[in-house]
Amino acid sequence: MGQSYDIIVVGGSAGALDALVAMVPHLPGSLRAAIVVVVHMGSTAESNLATILARNGPLPASHANDGEAIRQGHIYVARPDRHLIVSDGKLHLTEGPRENRHRPAIDPLFRSAAESHSDRVIGVLLSGALDDGVSGLAMIKRAGGIAIVQDPADALVSSIPKHAVAQVAVDHVVTSGGLGPLLTRLVQPRSGPATSDAPRSGLDNAVKMNFGDVGTNKEGQHVMYSCPDCGGVLVETESGEVLRYTCHEGHILSAESLLAAKAEMLEAALWEALRTLDERTQLSERFAAHARSRGQTVMQGHFQRRADESRERAEIVRRVLKGGTNYGREGV
């Protein structure tokens, strides 16, 4: 018999908890694979995900510890504010730069699994906004692993599944209720010759990239965009059909994450502009009233014109801010 898939990496964001709770009851307690999970969370959040998964299914679940050996039949969950990666049969926690504005992020886990387990890994993307994990899932496919995506129609937030289906040649698109049975079937030993434990040759540098030297990556093309996290110059690289942007400090963003970050910056700038225009209006009206009280007609007209001008511009910005647009921030 050939070698089986012995590690399952799962990633998601908003709505992923529901999918995981629907998945774990259908996994056998004797599952011959480890499951490693990253779900986006705040850096100061307290995560109860491991407790919830252990309570709802037969497999034990716990938060990952740095240097912990990976055991089959166990669910490992990322901790807040730490990337979770797999290497040399162990779990590793890192405070590396945020990816797609998240830590933990899905892509680091998927990328490390593609490198360390090549065609023995199964990648699963669940509900969530934007597209973190899509690049990593593409790398798992390039390494010979299996790519699974929650059906976008079944996801509470469909953005991650939709992007995955559009950009990756996924093997299975299933509902959350179908994930457990599918994974159980896929983990069974495969027929044919066993594969090597070593990483496959021919993987692109994005798969092999170590976390320690991410900031010194010289490949790709410098672009006229700045990193939303630190302001550094971004380098654009392409892995398959997926574009990624990396700055010198090591922040990594997908196309959708970069667009969302720029949208947030635009909204913040517009609110700042509105506040400044409102203050300019109030100051100009105060100066106009002061000039009027002293009979300074010319100065009164000068300041009143400035007040009217600022008020008109503020109204334009206010209409933009309150016009119902989300500035392209899909799923936010």
Rank of each mutant, 00 (worst) to 15 (best):
V173F: 03
P108E: 01
L109T: 09
M265P: 05
I35R: 00
M299D: 02
D81A: 07
A166H: 01
A289T: 01
K141C: 15
I160M: 15
G324M: 02
A164E: 07
S87R: 13
G232R: 07
G144D: 06
V134T: 09
Q150G: 01
L27C: 11
K262H: 05
S176A: 14
H163Y: 13
R280M: 13
D171P: 03
R142I: 05
L186I: 03
V10F: 05
D204F: 02
V21R: 14
S257G: 10
A147G: 14
L321D: 09
M224W: 05
S112A: 08
L270S: 10
E99M: 06
R275D: 12
E219Q: 14
P189S: 06
S254D: 01
V170E: 02
I35S: 11
G212D: 09
S159Y: 04
V38E: 04
G145L: 09
R98P: 00
H290G: 12
G144F: 08
G240L: 01
G73C: 10
G180F: 07
S284E: 09
A64M: 07
F303R: 00
S254K: 01
V332W: 13
S158I: 09
A69S: 08
A153I: 15
A260F: 07
E219C: 04
G231F: 04
T195Y: 10
S43A: 13
I148D: 15
T246I: 09
C247T: 00
H83I: 02
V24T: 02
V77K: 09
Q167I: 10
G96T: 00
E279Y: 09
S30A: 11
E68C: 05
D131E: 15
H251D: 11
V235I: 11
I140M: 03
P104C: 08
D131T: 11
E267Y: 01
H172C: 04
A263K: 01
E264F: 00
W271P: 07
E312Y: 12
A19R: 04
E312G: 15
G136D: 12
G89C: 02
T94E: 03
R306N: 12
G133Q: 05
N210C: 14
S158T: 14
L179T: 07
R329G: 05
G136S: 10
Q3N: 15
L156D: 14
A143Y: 04
N205W: 14
A22I: 02
L243M: 03
A19L: 03
V149L: 06
A169Q: 03
E256W: 06
D132E: 14
A64Y: 04
E330R: 15
R294M: 12
V165S: 00
G177A: 15
L91G: 01
L91P: 02
M265R: 15
G250L: 00
Y76V: 00
